[in-house]
Amino acid sequence: MEHEGRSLVLYFLFIFSVGYVYSENIATGTTYTFRPTIQGKIETFDWRHNGNLVVEWDPDNGAHWYRYRERAHLNTDTADLTLQVKKEDSGVFKGQFQVKGVLQYFERTITVIDPVPEPKVACKQNDTGITLLCSVDPSVQAAFTWTGPNEFSHVGESVHIPRKSDDAVYFCTAKNLVSEKTTEFTLKMCPEGEANDDGGNGGAIAGGIIGILLLVAIAVAAYYFGIKKKVCMSAASPDGRGQRKSMSTS
Rank of each mutant, 00 (worst) to 15 (best):
Phe12Met: 06
Asn25Gln: 09
Tyr32Leu: 05
Ile15Ser: 09
Cys134Thr: 05
Gly51Pro: 04
Met1Thr: 07
Asn25Pro: 02
Asn126Ala: 07
Glu180Pro: 00
Phe106Trp: 10
Ser234Trp: 09
Glu4Ala: 14
Ile161Arg: 03
Val216Lys: 10
Glu118His: 04
Gly207Cys: 11
Val178Cys: 05
His49Tyr: 08
His73Ala: 12
Phe106Arg: 13
Arg69Ile: 10
Phe185Gly: 03
Glu24Tyr: 04
Leu213Ser: 04
Ala168Leu: 00
Val216Met: 08
Asn201Tyr: 11
Phe12Trp: 07
Ala206Gln: 13
Thr249Arg: 08
Ala222Gly: 15
Glu180Gly: 01
Val99Arg: 01
His73Asn: 07
Cys134Gly: 15
Ala221Ser: 13
Val216Tyr: 10
Glu157Ala: 15
Thr173Lys: 12
Pro36Glu: 05
Gly193Glu: 11
Tyr223His: 07
Phe16Leu: 14
Asp80Cys: 00
Phe185Arg: 00
Asn75Cys: 01
Val102Thr: 07
Glu192Val: 08
Phe106Leu: 09
Ser17Asp: 09
Lys41Glu: 12
His3Ala: 15
Lys230Ile: 11
Asn50Lys: 14
Tyr11Asp: 14
Met233Phe: 06
Ile209Gly: 02
Gly51Ser: 03
Asp167Ser: 06
Gly199Asn: 11
Tyr20Lys: 05
Phe14Gly: 06
Ile161Cys: 01
Tyr224Gln: 04
Ala63His: 01
Phe185Cys: 04
Gly240Lys: 10
Ala236Lys: 06
Ser237Val: 03
Gln243Leu: 06
Leu53Gly: 00
Gly226Val: 02
Arg6Val: 10
Val231Thr: 04
Ile209Val: 12
Ser135Asp: 15
Val112Cys: 04
Lys228Gly: 10
Tyr22Arg: 15
Gln96Lys: 11
Ser139Thr: 01
Glu2Leu: 14
Ala221Gly: 12
Asp89Gly: 00
Phe185Lys: 00
Asp166His: 14
Arg48Lys: 15
Gly240Ser: 15
Ile205Ala: 11
Cys123Ser: 13
Asp167Lys: 11
His160Leu: 14
Thr31Tyr: 10
Ser179Ile: 04
Tyr11Leu: 15
Thr30Tyr: 06
Ile130Ser: 05
Ser234His: 12
Thr186Ile: 03
Lys230Val: 08
Leu10Tyr: 13
Asn201Ser: 08
Leu8Gln: 11
Ala27Lys: 07
Tyr20Leu: 12
Gly29Cys: 08
Val102Trp: 13
Phe12Tyr: 11
Gln98Met: 04
Leu83Phe: 08
Glu88Ser: 06
Val99Gly: 12
Thr186Gly: 00
Thr182Tyr: 02
Ile161Ala: 10
Ala217Leu: 13
Gln84Val: 08
Thr78Trp: 01
Lys245His: 10
Cys190Ser: 09
Val116Glu: 03
Arg67Glu: 14
Val85Pro: 01
Leu8Gly: 15
Arg6Asn: 07
Leu13Lys: 12
Pro36Gln: 14
Val99Glu: 04
Ser248Ile: 11
Tyr22His: 11
Ser234Leu: 14
Ile205Gly: 00
